[in-house]
């Protein structure tokens, strides 16, 4: 494949120093990875292996201890690039704003005209199944609905690179599949590059063009699996026998690593 490189991680590693003691936690890497422009890339890995850390490095929210991160050909180095949208693992809704104002927050700053803003927000609300809640406050919504508000808030900005950290974590399996379909549709329409962290192997297998499998902490890429799905796809591919093969292969790679990280957690407690 000779597609344009959109994001490049070269030998990226991250360690955290602890305030109380002098020891450092090696959280991630070294990682070498290139995301192609317009591809859908998913990451799976055991808990605590550094997935969120990797996302923050790409978003420029934290800087790498070693190596470099490039976005659209320019080094990020702790500077936050334009054109990147992030959906965080935690609920990031602003509790003092209505759902509409939450979703509108970035647009308002981007100084788009009111009609365009309203149109984008209305469409995002409808797409995320939040109709009827536009004037509610986040506290009046369920956890899964708040997550969808955060997704909508990111998508209305039309980012060229979308980083999602377990965005469907609080959703039930059915809604999760349907939201996956919406995400696929949106990805096709927008042409954006998507980087999705998930703990659900089937979600990765169904949505992504490629899946990166990470080791236990410090997270390294153990394997990158090409799914080979056509661009036009939706949740019905779960019936395809290849879906089962991909999920099985993911689990084979991950089983041992997950046991390692469980064991490490057990030993240290």
């Amino acid at each position: 494949m000779t597609a344009e490189v959109h994001v490049a991680l070269r030998g990226v590693g991250k360690s955290f120093s602890r305030a109380e003691s002098s020891d450092v936690v090696h959280a991630l890497g070294p990682i070498d990875l290139e995301l192609r422009k317009g591809e859908f890339f998913a990451v799976v890995g055991p808990s605590g292996c550094g997935k969120s850390t990797m996302l923050e490095l790409i978003a420029g929210l934290t800087s790498a201890t070693s190596g470099s991160v490039e976005f659209e050909g320019a080094s990020i180095a702790g500077r936050i690039p334009d054109g990147v949208g992030v959906v965080f693992q935690e609920d990031a809704c602003f509790p003092w704003m209505t759902i509409r104002d939450n979703i509108d927050f970035g647009l308002k700053r981007a100084k788009l005209d009111a009609v365009e803003r309203r149109d984008r927000v209305d469409r995002a609300i409808a797409m995320m199944g939040l109709s009827g809640f536009a004037e509610s406050y986040p506290a009046q919504l369920s956890g899964g609905m708040r997550q969808r508000v955060c997704i909508a808030r990111t998508l209305v900005m039309k980012p060229r690179l979308i980083l999602l950290d377990e965005p469907f974590g609080a959703l039930d399996q059915q809604t999760r599949l349907l939201m996956g379909d919406e995400l696929l549709k949106l990805w096709r329409l927008s042409g954006a590059t998507v980087f999705l962290i998930t703990h659900a192997l089937d979600e990765a297998a169904m949505l992504a063009d490629r899946i990166g499998v990470m080791s236990a902490r410090p997270g390294r890429l153990l394997d990158v699996i090409e799914t080979g799905w056509p661009k036009e796809r939706d949740s019905r591919i779960v019936e395809d026998p290849r879906f089962g093969e991909i999920t099985a292969r993911l689990w084979r790679s991950l089983r041992e690593e997950s046991m390692k990280s469980m064991g490490a957690a057990g030993a240290s407690s």
Binding site: E56, I80, V86, F94, M157
Partner: peptide
């Protein structure tokens, strides 16, 4: 909450 500040940072 840190994630609210991060949300602002991403929007520059």
């Amino acid at each position: 909450r840190v994630v609210l500040i991060k949300t602002g940072l991403v929007l520059n």
